[in-house]
Structures are given as structure tokens and as C-alpha cells.
């Protein structure tokens, strides 16, 4: 119990450390999926471990102590009392962070729905008559694509097709769900922040690869990205994904090489890394149940 319960902590550090390398080497569609899955399982196992640590405080509950004294039983202390108290505090923080993350997600959804007002139903493309070059997918159903007139004006015809194909890929593969799942994992376990950044980058790469396949031209896809990025300039405000560090140039560079291989073995290793903390947590649960059975029965 005492070791198992801390495995999610160690393994989330490990997952965070390897995620950028996985993101660079494995095909984006596969890498984004396994990293998100591993992050969610690791975060869930971490929360459960906190619950277990908090549950050890039951030993210190006055009725339990009194009863144990009457029966002449010695109470086992699997972890120091201070750790149990800390776990309780951590759980409260996690609950608050999760609530905040959910609220932000819902707020974004509401704001996006407002952008679709006034447009006839059944149209995929929503144009905003704006001088600010922007483009993003509005998750559905039905999914929509918002592009500003400035962005459309900056691109060549084939590049406009790249842009539309890129945003369609976000919608078709439900990238917003993946990123939201990674968001919630980070809310529950801040150590996983690098994984979230990698997933955010990977869904862009994934959409780039889909667009290149749809248009059938990697070079045109790279040029579309370059032109869009140059016309968008350096607003500094759109850095919320936290991966702006050379993100566009890295995407352009990736399009100038062959698509990355699937490397299923690496993907399987990442998934295994995600399952380990769950096993650790399950083992720790078993141990705690035994302890509690000794104390309470």
C-alpha cells in the first residue's frame, strides 16, 4: 500500500517527461489518442490514490480508536496522519480545479454558439467580416468552421482548401473532445501539463496531415500554414495552447518530410505507462480494504 499509492505520482512525471518525444516520433493521430488516454487514466488513478490516503484517516476517527482500545487491538498506521490530512487538502484543490475547468469549457461552448447566430442552419462555413485573420473549428453537432474574411483574402485558392480541410479534420475526429479530456486530466493532476501541451500540438499536426492527404499536396499545405501564420502576425494573445514555441514552424517542417510512422510499439508502451498507475491504485485499494477490515470488523 505504502509504495503503490504513490505510483501515480511518479508515473505522471514519467508520462509528462516522455510525451514530447512520443509526439515528435509517432503519427499524430495515434500519439494524440494514446497520450490522452494515458493522461486520463493516470489522473484518475492519482485522484483515487488521494482518496485512499485520505481514507487512512479513518483510523484516527474517535469512535474507531475507542472501539479498538476496548477490544485491545493495536491500530495499524499505513501512512503518517499528516499525509492523510494533506491528501484531504489536495482532494479539495483537485475538486476546485475540475469545477473551474468544466466551467471554462462550458463558457467557451456558449461563446461559440453565439458566433453561429444569424447564420442559416446547414451551412458549414461561417465567415466573420473581420480584419483580424482567424480560423477555428466550432465543435458541433453540427460542427461549423469559422474563418474571417481577412484570413480568406490572405490565402491562395488551394490554400483555402487546405484551411477548410484542416478545420474539417478537427470536427470529424472530435479533436475538441480529446483536448477537453486532456484539460480535465491536467486539472486533476497539474504534473500532466506537458502532456496536454503535446496533445494540443498533435491535434494540429493530425489536422495538417488530413488536410495534406485531402488536397493531395504537402507543399501547398505547408505554404498555407506559412501564409496564414504570417498574415496573422504576432498577436501574442492567441498563445493559449501553450505550445506556440515554434509550433507553426515545427508543423511546416513536419509537412516537408514524409508522414511519421505509426510505431505501434511506442504507442503500446505509452498505454502501458498509463495502465500502471491504475494497477498501483487498485493494489493499494486492496491493501487499504484489508487494513480497514482489520480495524472495523
Amino acid at each position: 500500500m505504502t509504495v503503490d499509492v504513490y505510483t501515480p505520482l511518479v508515473l505522471s512525471l514519467l508520462l509528462a517527461a516522455i510525451s514530447p518525444a512520443v509526439g515528435r516520433r509517432v503519427a499524430p493521430a495515434l500519439a494524440a489518442r494514446v497520450l490522452t488516454a494515458a493522461a486520463v487514466v493516470t489522473a484518475a488513478a492519482g485522484v483515487w490514490s488521494l482518496v485512499l490516503l485520505a481514507a487512512t484517516l479513518v483510523n484516527d476517527a474517535p469512535p474507531v480508536v475507542a472501539e479498538a482500545r476496548e477490544n485491545g487491538r493495536r491500530l495499524v498506521e499505513p501512512v503518517p496522519e499528516g499525509i492523510g490530512v494533506l491528501a484531504c487538502l489536495a482532494l479539495a484543490v483537485v475538486a476546485h480545479r475540475l469545477w473551474r475547468a468544466v466551467r471554462t469549457t462550458l463558457g467557451t461552448r456558449r461563446a461559440l454558439r453565439r458566433l453561429c447566430e444569424g447564420h442559416p442552419p446547414g451551412t458549414e462555413l461561417i465567415v466573420a467580416a473581420s480584419e483580424v485573420p482567424r480560423a477555428f473549428a466550432i465543435p458541433g453537432p453540427p460542427g461549423r468552421i469559422l474563418v474571417t474574411s481577412a484570413m480568406l483574402g490572405a490565402l491562395q485558392p488551394v490554400e483555402r482548401r487546405v484551411l477548410l480541410a484542416h478545420e474539417r479534420a478537427h470536427l470529424a475526429h472530435r479533436h475538441s473532445l480529446l483536448v477537453t479530456a486532456a484539460d480535465l486530466a491536467v486539472a486533476a493532476n497539474p504534473l500532466l501539463r506537458p502532456v496536454r501541451a503535446t496533445v494540443a500540438f498533435l491535434v494540429e499536426r493530425w489536422a495538417d496531415e488530413r488536410a495534406a492527404a485531402t488536397v493531395g499536396d504537402r507543399t501547398a499545405t505547408a505554404r498555407a500554414l506559412a501564409r496564414a501564420a504570417l498574415s496573422a502576425g504576432r498577436p501574442g494573445s492567441s498563445c493559449a495552447l501553450g505550445f506556440t514555441d515554434r509550433a507553426v514552424t515545427r508543423r511546416v517542417a513536419a509537412l516537408q518530410c514524409a508522414p511519421p510512422p505509426h510505431l505501434r510499439s511506442v504507442a503500446a508502451a505509452v498505454l502501458a505507462l498509463g495502465v500502471l498507475p491504475a494497477l498501483g491504485a487498485a493494489d493499494a485499494t486492496d491493501d487499504l480494504l484489508h487494513l480497514l477490515a482489520n480495524v472495523l470488523v
Binding site: 461563446a111 480560423a135 478537427h170 475538441s176 500554414l225 504576432r234 494573445s237 498563445c239 493559449a240 514552424t249
Partner: peptide, 12 residues
Amino acid sequence: PIAALQQFVTGL
């Protein structure tokens, strides 16, 4: 909330 979206491109 919009900055939290995946945008086609980000800063340079």
C-alpha cells in the same frame, strides 16, 4: 474563451 480554441495558426 476563444483563445482557448485550437486556432489554425498561432503566434510567431
